[in-house]
Nucleic acid binder design. Structure first.
Length: 660
DNA sequence: GAGACGG
């Protein structure tokens, strides 16, 4: 059936290629054709052509495709791995490994669609949520294509496993090193019964070692990150060439095509053979396909590409299915106390046999490092019998060595109960089993980023929940950036809204918790504090009110970290604010910290915070009992009883009616 | 002065 695609009549192709077709006209064209044409067009890769028409959205195209499929009475795609071998579509040695060693029988939806389509030779862009087996979806057809070119590679003949270094037939590009390694593990598995040679090229490893290995063993399938790939392709002396490349896979394609990567990707293409001379199949995979990517895709993929929108209409995507709560913080300084309160509570609530496995995302690497160190102190280091002593803390971001990154990622992957403090390195594609919580501190750069991070939990049919901690700086931006997401306001964390500058009374348990957290900050390396402080201004560069930002940051340093004098902000910030003098006398640079009309920063004692919280005794919640505070002290029972929001959030645990 | 991607 799929071979028939190549024989798709030229006349039909021409019709479908006409950029003036709407999806409706396209359907009509197909359904009015003769039975023979209709049959050959069963999987009409060219339905996607309709996307060339400006009025056709991806959704319409996908709908048209399904409809055409139904109308034409397709005998349906192959859904069992075994059948791929019995129909002679994929080499039995590959399929046997999948069915016997990996114990997979039925393909997932994304696998069904992409494998069938890609084997037919058309370009594919596949949209599927994470954790649905996208990797096999492109590895199977890519490996098969390699075997097609040289059938001897299907066998595991001794001696034949020697490929030449310039034999690269397929390249898979991934935005992060860890994801590339994860893909390579799968690739080596499915090629273990064949003579196909897999190599990995990622940064942070020894380039010479990798090149020597490639010289020695050769390479058919190369899995790489953009930087290193460009590095070795452009290295005339000792690099690699791919004159016979005929498959290119972009995993997390939307990420690869956006600002940060697109330039490198373009450059990489300059080193690859001209598609006009060497026919090349391109496969793009992504969990989200934002509108801006569409134009790029049109230019990148061959006309007649296939769009596999493997998002089940009936099944809710992760970001609609997973419960998500928003914690509105009184200030930056409330972040760590609230995180600590939340994790402690969740760990205690889960003790018996159900582990707590969380990823906490931050927007700068320095914040990741700081939070991880503080939590390490809070968990009592390596001491036993603390609330967090059975929960290991790990840290991962791009500023660590590759060795540290790999260790953290593997440790967390196999951990039962643990917290991973992370930057966006792990936001996409990474498969950590059984993550129960994804906590995002600060507003992510965009909506997709939020969704990808959230996608680390509730995978493979498991439960999970999302949390978003927001500072006052983000109150307005969140409505713009995270529209239409079921974010439910949560006010169950007492430390989230408490005024940490308040000299007034506060409940003993809250005071104690704050003291613990502030003291932990005093035990970490001072440069961690300085770096995180500076990092904030980068992470919040979108925030217009620089003055207000500095004021909030100063409060963080004073009341959250117990510093007498906030660290200096980046000098560029001061020039941006304009007209603000520098000076340490006010207890900070540029802006006097404090706000809320309270006089602060007078006491000179080094242990001021400790003293304050230490002296606080006696439950005096009444003094806090003023208006609007009630929710914060309502105990754990009433989760959704917020009354501050003003926006009117859903109260009950049911489906939220109010969206940002 | 962010994040990811080569040293």
């Amino acid at each position: 059936m799929f071979g028939a695609l190549r024989r798709c009549p030229a006349s039909l192709m021409r019709n479908l290629s006409s950029a003036t077709l709407s999806s409706r006209a396209l359907r009509a064209t197909v359904s009015q054709s003769s039975p023979a044409v209709r049959r050959t067009a069963t999987w009409v890769p060219n339905v996607a052509i309709a996307a060339f028409h400006q009025s056709a959205t991806w959704r319409q195209v996908a709908a048209a495709e399904v409809e055409v499929d139904q109308q034409l009475g397709s005998d349906g795609p192959i859904t069992q791995f075994k059948e791929l071998a019995t129909h002679g579509l994929v080499h039995p040695n590959v399929i046997n490994t999948i069915t016997r060693q990996m114990r997979l029988e039925t393909m997932t939806e994304v696998q069904t669609r992409t494998i069938n389509e890609a084997l037919s030779g058309s370009d594919v862009i596949a949209q599927a949520k994470t954790g649905t087996g996208k990797t096999l979806g492109f590895l199977v057809p890519v490996v098969q294509k390699i075997i097609n070119e040289d059938p001897r590679l299907g066998e595991r003949a001794r001696g034949y496993k020697k490929a030449r270094p310039d034999d690269i037939r397929a390249i898979v590009i991934s935005p992060t090193r860890e994801l590339a390694e994860q893909i390579a593990v799968e690739a080596r598995k499915i090629t273990s019964g064949t003579s196909v040679v897999v190599q990995v090229a990622v940064g942070g490893t020894q380039k010479r070692m990798m090149l020597a290995k490639t010289q020695r063993e050769g390479c058919h399938l190369l899995i790489a990150t953009p930087g290193r790939l460009l590095d070795i392709l452009s290295d005339e002396y000792s690099g690699v060439k791919a004159p016979r490349l005929n498959s290119l896979v972009m995993d997390e394609a939307d990420r690869l095509l956006d600002d940060g990567f697109s330039k490198e990707i373009e450059e990489i293409k300059n080193y690859l053979p001209d598609p006009a001379e060497v026919d090349r199949q391109t496969l793009m995979f992504s969990a989200t396909v934002p509108r801006e990517v569409v134009d790029l895709v049109r230019r990148t993929l061959k006309p007649g590409f296939h769009y596999a929108r493997c998002v089940d209409e009936d099944e809710q995507p992760t970001h609609e299915r997973v419960p998500q709560r928003v914690v509105q913080l009184a200030g930056f300084e409330n972040t760590m106390p609230a995180l600590y309160e939340l994790t402690k509570r969740e760990i205690q609530a889960r003790q018996a046999g159900s582990p707590f496995k969380a990823i906490i995302y931050f927007n700068s690497t320095a914040e990741v490092t700081l939070a991880a160190s503080v939590f390490f102190k809070l968990s009592g280091g390596f001491r036993r019998n603390t609330p967090l002593s059975n929960t290991r803390c790990y840290e991962i971001h791009s500023k660590l060595s590759q060795g540290q990154r790999t260790k953290a990622s593997d440790s967390f992957r196999f951990a039962d109960s643990a917290i991973l403090f992370s930057s966006d390195v792990t936001a996409r594609g990474m498969d950590f089993p059984n993550v129960t919580h994804v906590i995002q501190v600060g507003l992510p750069r965009d909506r997709d980023s939020y969704i990808h991070r959230l996608g680390r939990t509730a995978r493979a049919g498991k439960e999970g929940e999302g949390w978003l901690f927001l500072s006052p700086a983000e109150e307005h931006e969140v409505r713009r950036r995270l529209r239409q997401l079921p974010l439910l306001q949560d006010s169950s964390l007492e430390t989230a809204t408490v005024d940490m500058a308040a000299e007034g009374e506060m409940p003993e348990n809250v005071a104690k918790l704050l003291e613990e957290v502030v003291n932990a900050h005093k035990k970490v390396y001072p440069e961690h504090l300085d770096n995180a402080f500076r990092g904030l201004f980068g992470a919040y560069q979108w925030y217009g009110d620089k003055r207000g930002l500095l004021e909030m940051a100063n409060r963080l340093a004073q009341f959250g970290w117990g510093m007498d004098t906030p660290p200096p902000p980046p000098s560029s910030l001061l020039s941006r604010m304009g007209g603000v003098g520098r000076g340490r006398s006010s207890g900070g640079f540029g802006v006097r910290p404090g706000g809320r009309g309270r006089v602060v920063g007078r006491s000179g004692g080094g242990d001021r915070m400790g003293g304050r919280f230490g002296d606080r005794r006696g439950d005096s919640r009444d003094s806090f009992g003023g208006r609007d505070r009630s929710g914060a002290f309502g105990g754990r029972g009433g989760d959704f009883n917020d009354r501050r929001g003003g926006g009117g959030f859903e109260r009950g645990p049911g489906r939220p009616t109010n969206f940002y």
